[in-house]
Design a protein around this nucleic acid. Structure first.
Lengths: 342, 342
DNA sequence: GACATTAATGTAAGCGCTTGCATGAATCAA
DNA sequence: TTGATTCATGCAAGCGCTTACATTAATGTC
């Protein structure tokens, strides 16, 4: 893994007949160099295919213009478009994004944080706020600027750009209750080490608990983020003796898996059972019936997270956390339970 | 964007009472350091929250253990899981992945390649093989090790780990023809600057052309990678006077968009019109009717690409390109045209 | 014309790390 | 005992870059 042979500043300097300092200035602060010299330098740069050596630059300037993001998984549509938006905003400011994934494992996340710091990240984007004390200590010890996204807390410590998972789940559940459902099951994401999944469970639970008309949770099944897992969880719920009239799912993938399985088993959605999702990814509008779900404005969230992080990095006036609002998207997978509908 | 205050090797050296050289060795080549010393060093490292400075390390060792990947878009399910697999294999070898996206723009891709080189990428993963000469020259000039994925060419130059888009589309189209379809339309991805999209068009065209029983392409519409675009393209095709009995789509997203629109307009799939996809992402099994499509083994492809790249980087015996086989997945969106079915 | 000011460029130190070589201590062979 | 070998560690150069400071040339002021 040698990079031998890469042209260096010195090579360019020689080729252009000036000192390395002038080259450096021409590249970083063009105004300081005479136009004529600048053009000569540009030619030499192009001819040699020169790109500045990151190591040298970092070492000398102590700046990397790089931020890192650690997402639970790249293979999750939920993060993809937000991250894409995050990157685009960073790129506008000449900041490069390094992406790593934690596999929903907080221990692994810790390692990735260290790795990204090693690789010169000036700041970080983290997803969710559940992580071991060790990780928090490290972030504090090293005074790493970071923003937390995909969740929201109204606390003075930490900069959040995201939405309140508990509140959104609560709102959705109340809507389900308004339709007349009283026996409700939930297919949740794995809550261990995942505050978003847990908060969604909590939101559903609270809405059910606060209902004064006999609403109850028949069952909560946790499932990994795959269609099959949603399908299996559906089976588990529907093979119990205590059947729900509505199943609230922790995300759209699980909901879609459940709907497809329902269809395969001859259960009609929403006539026999209503199913709701969360996130409003593409899947939600494609599945039949269309999935009633919670729209998360991922692009807005990613963009705003990038802006806040850039702010932190440039020591601009501190901003406080930003709550992104979610929105209920009504499609056809939620309807009044049959008994009432008749 | 200052990193001031980060502990350095020297800080650790002082804390542990040894020289910087010993620390460096303890971290990179533990066997060379006495166990007792090593433990003392580890304690100091933990206490200070030390992470090696990437710049210094790169500068001194000329090795970065970092590779870059430039994908057209992160918000595209098609690349997500392959990339995730790619990253996981790299991680096993202690190699970090930097991800950038080109927005399907070859000019932008060039800039990202330069950026990744600047950031110390030892090697690259590139998607597809269509790029301007300028980019190819740069890659050659700088002797950058790279592998090209998501496509396959049987040429001696360049290391490909991917599948043959043309062949896969050809196979799929022949299957459609076998069902008796003769009037075929295509909703393709944008072919400009995108060899995968173009090759799929070519595969479809060739199969139709080679058919000796009057098969023809009624229309080819190119559309961006979004559900709505698939829907709009469907409208465009079905509003012409010359109607197809089957629509072959360049990817699953377009196909799903078309199916949903067909449903909304009361056209039955596959009775009125058959629709096929490409990629076999989650969407394909969720949409109703299930999408007949081409399965691309993304995970396998990503893993293999990572292995080949690691190989290139360690100067191991050169390997040649690897063709990943695709597979037709028959679901319900393809059937014989009604006229024949009766 | 003498001096001050400005603009363009050069000089050289030093960022944090790795590594070839040197050193010293401990162990071994004869 | 003594020279050879091994092991653990230190010394110091240098990776490619930025930047404070020095230098030189050009221009302006009175």
């Amino acid at each position: 893994m040698k990079n031998t042979g890469s042209p260096t500043l010195e090579d360019v300097a020689e080729a252009a007949g000036v000192s390395t300092a002038t080259i450096s200035r021409a590249l970083n602060d063009p105004d300081k160099v005479a136009k004529e010299t600048r053009e000569r330098i540009q030619k030499a740069v192009d001819r040699l295919g020169y790109t500045p050596n990151f190591g040298g630059r970092v070492l000398a300037s102590n700046r990397t213009n790089t931020v890192g993001a650690i997402i639970p998984s790249m293979a999750n549509a939920m993060f993809a478009s937000g991250l894409q938006a995050f990157q685009e905003v960073l790129a506008e400011s000449g900041v490069t994004l390094l992406v790593a994934s934690s596999g929903y494992d907080t221990e692994h996340e810790f390692r990735q944080i260290r790795s990204l710091m090693t690789h010169g990240a000036d700041g970080l984007l983290l997803i969710g706020d559940e992580r071991p004390q060790k990780t928090k200590d490290f972030l504090a010890l090293r005074k790493i600027p970071y923003v937390i996204s995909w969740c929201y807390r109204n606390t003075p410590d930490g900069l959040y750009v995201g939405f309140d998972n508990e509140k959104a789940a609560y709102k959705l559940t109340n809507r389900v209750l308004e339709f007349g459902h009283r026996d409700i099951a939930m297919i949740a994401g794995i809550s261990k080490g995942n505050d978003r999944a847990r908060n969604r469970i909590e939101g559903v639970s609270r809405a059910v608990r606060e209902n004064t008309d006999g609403a109850r949770l028949t069952k909560i099944v946790e499932a990994r983020y795959r269609l099959e897992n949603g399908a299996e969880a559906f089976d588990e719920i529907m093979s119990a003796s205590d059947l729900p009239t509505a199943i609230i799912c922790g995300n759209d993938v699980l909901a879609a898996g459940a709907i497809v399985r329902a269809r395969k088993k001859g259960a009609r959605v929403p006539d026999d059972v209503s199913i709701t999702g969360f996130d409003d990814i593409g899947l939600a509008s494609v599945v039949e019936p269309g999935l009633t779900t919670v729209r998360v404005p991922q692009i807005e969230m990613g963009q705003e997270a990038a802006r806040q992080l850039l702010r932190l990095l440039s020591n601009q006036p501190a901003t406080s956390s930003i709550e992104i609002e979610t929105e209920l998207v009504m499609r056809d997978s939620l309807a009044a339970p049959k008994a009432l509908a008749v």
